[in-house]
């Protein structure tokens, strides 16, 4: 049983467990995005970074994939870790600003602005759907195709796969599919409006939509949506 120190706490961890599991066991919260209990860890989002080592020789590793080692010194909330996490969330947000999951993360970790060009991709390549399909649904219908910049998740030859049973598991688990509030149609949307203390959009909208400053959605769909008051009941905008 390897002994580790986690946030100054000495702990005898189970052999073969990951740092994330140890932290989980001790009730230390580490944010994750591409990790799911029922699926094999993948280490794509890097959100679960922790700092290991002592003194000058520390480095960041992804806790969801890193196995415990004898004498490891782990810090889950060091200054460097927190700064890195915020940056990662900001980057994720720039990639996929409309995802509710990412927006929630941003809100939780106090990321209130995005300094990068927004890409509006509908995929962050976390690979959850691929693993869901293969490991839980026994489907193996989708995969990560291509590489580098051209990497994308798709079926063989981009056509409907014979393996796909349309179970919807991929969509169920996708953090990017869960859209945030899509506009003034509050009834039909999920959003973080309740968390907004001073939503900037209230100046031009009837209802608050998000807490971002500058407002991501307004930037996205500025042309599509009315800038000034709009009747709540009207549906033609949705």
């Amino acid at each position: 049983m390897p002994k580790v120190t986690i946030n100054g706490l000495e702990f005898e961890a189970e052999k073969g467990s990951t740092l994330l599991e140890v932290a989980d066991f001790l009730g230390i919260e580490i944010p994750t995005l591409c990790y799911h209990e029922g699926l094999s860890p993948y280490g794509a989002c890097r959100l679960c970074v922790v700092e290991i080592g002592v003194g000058e020789n520390t480095r960041l590793v992804t806790s969801c994939t890193y196995p415990v080692q004898e004498g490891l010194n782990i810090r889950t909330h060091s200054e460097r870790v927190v700064r890195t996490r915020k940056m990662l969330i900001e980057l994720l947000l720039a990639t996929c600003p409309s995802s509710k999951v990412i927006q929630d993360l941003a809100s939780k970790f106090g990321v209130t602005q995005v300094r990068f060009k927004q890409e509006h991709n509908d995929c962050i390549l976390c690979g959850l759907c691929v693993r869901m399909c293969a490991e839980q649904m026994d489907g193996k219908a989708i995969g990560l195709v291509g590489r580098g910049d051209d990497l994308k998740i798709t079926t063989p030859f981009d056509i409907k796969s014979e393996q796909c049973r349309l179970c919807g598991g991929c969509m169920y688990i996708c953090p990017a599919c869960q859209l945030r509030c899509q506009g003034p149609d509050v009834e039909e949307a999920v959003c973080n409006a309740c968390l907004n203390l001073e939503p900037p959009c209230l100046e031009s909208w009837d209802d608050a939509m998000c807490y971002m400053d500058p407002c991501v959605a307004c930037e996205v769909e500025y042309s599509r949506k009315p800038k000034v008051k709009k009747e709540k009941t009207s549906k033609e905008q949705s």
């Binding site: 293969a134 193996k140 219908a141 989708i142 995969g143 990560l144 195709v145 291509g146 590489r147 079926t155 063989p156 030859f157 796969s161 014979e162 393996q163």
Partner: peptide, 25 residues
Amino acid sequence: PQEALSYVAEKLEIPLIDVYCVASF
């Protein structure tokens, strides 16, 4: 060719997507 990949996948009993991933990589 697409048919060739499908055939190889079937004969080797590998999911087609895995063959396709390698081929596209």
